[in-house]
Amino acid sequence: MGKIEDLQVINGEGYQLTRLEKVLGTARANSVWPLPFATSCCGIEYMATMGSNYDLARFGMERMSFSPRQADLLIVAGTISKKLGPVLKQVYEQMAEPKWVLSVGACACSGGIFDTYSVLQGIDRIIPVDVYVPGCPPRPEQIIDGIIRIHELVKNEPLRRRYSDEYKHLLKDYNIETNDPEQSDK
């Protein structure tokens, strides 16, 4: 992921439309509701980020939605073991489009020091990741950095990107079904 610029070229629209998309994108970026999938140490730092000193609410992000249906941003913070992998994938699949993934901390990004038989070596093996935040655990500053990156992404993302072939292809690589509105009736 991350080739947003390319996609924008592909889906190039008229100037007015792009402008509207910019406005909508900015609005969307200011209301990204996170789903904290916090398993271990990074979860505590995430709590600190939510706390008064760093105040994630400034970005309109204090409404945590533990239900994947309502979330826009999946924050994976902490070790994901191979046992937990399917759960994470399921949560990702349950989220409604558009959705983004922030991988917080060394464990989620790459397994960190836990290069062991039981730990998944990076969540990007099972779900697509938009932004990586290094650190073990990252400081709240870094988590906010990552969130600002996500906001950049949201701002510049064309509305139709989620229907593009590239995106479908990407999900197919991960064996994730796209939940088309037509399919969900069944």
């Binding site: 397994g111 290069d115 062991t116 038989y117 039981s118 730990v119 070596q121 093996r125």
Partner: peptide, 13 residues
Amino acid sequence: PMRKEYHLEDATR
């Protein structure tokens, strides 16, 4: 896994 003959590492790294 904790028996000495088995590897610690994840083979996929």
